[in-house]
């Protein structure tokens, strides 16, 4: 465990918990894409298949349980909670699942480290995580403004990705045999997707005005 990895995990944790707590407190999910949240729930469910079979550390197991619990709780709030679900704008959240999920299944089947069920599912989760933010970014573009909630959420997710890249660089130079092309490339693609968003985020922050994304 290095400082980049720990900081990355903590910003990742913060992004999910901030979202969950805010939805719980303000009883609204306005501006949040249910599709992105469902894709993240699938990401955690397919990546952590080893949770009960391979013990890595107490930290690792607890974090996995928190990510699974919080991501499914967010989906439950948006779909089932009698007040929160009314604030979900289904008509704006139109990104099609198939355009994201099918290419990820296809890629995971042909490009993986080992052709076993667990390994293919793990690889699928990496590809899916890389693009799962797309429905949220499309929703942001469509509504053309983001409140603090959505802004902080996407900012924390972006920070998590950037810190993970630093973690990989650190581990590459400090650990023997630490080479993992699949998570690295998927992770870089995911980080690049945030780049565009960050430009506008910082721009609006610098000018101290509400963020407006271009059409």
């Amino acid at each position: 465990m290095n400082i980049f990895r720990l900081a990355g995990d903590m910003t990742h944790l913060a992004s999910v918990l901030v979202l969950l707590l805010k939805i719980h407190t303000i009883k609204s999910c306005a501006g949040i894409s249910l599709k992105t949240q469902e894709l993240y729930a699938i990401v955690f469910a397919t990546r952590y298949l080893d949770i009960f079979t391979d013990f890595i550390s107490l930290y690792n197991t607890i974090m996995k349980l928190i990510f699974l619990g919080s991501s499914f709780s967010i989906v439950w709030y948006i779909r089932q909670h009698k007040i929160v679900r009314r604030s979900y704008d289904k008509d704006q959240d139109t990104f099609r699942y198939v355009f994201i999920v099918l290419p990820c299944i296809f890629l995971a089947l042909i490009i993986n480290e080992k052709f076993t069920f667990k390994e293919v599912m793990w690889t699928f989760s990496l590809y899916l995580e890389a693009v799962a933010i797309l429905p949220q970014l499309v929703l942001l573009q469509r509504t053309r403004n983001i409140d603090n909630l959505t802004g902080q959420y996407v900012f924390l997710l972006g920070a998590y990705r950037a810190l993970y890249i630093l973690n990989w660089i650190y581990r590459y130079f400090t650990e023997p045999h630490y080479i993992h092309w699949i998570p690295w490339i998927a992770g870089i693609v995911q980080t690049l997707l945030y780049g565009d968003f960050f430009y506008y985020y910082f721009h609006s922050w610098k000018n101290n005005k509400k963020l407006q994304l271009p059409a």
């Binding site: 995990d9 890595i56 690792n60 974090m63 045999h177 630490y178 993992h180």
Partner: peptide, 10 residues
């Protein structure tokens, strides 16, 4: 092990 050295990541 080489194959699993990154599986401790979340």
């Amino acid at each position: 092990e080489k194959q699993d050295s990154g599986k401790d990541e979340l």
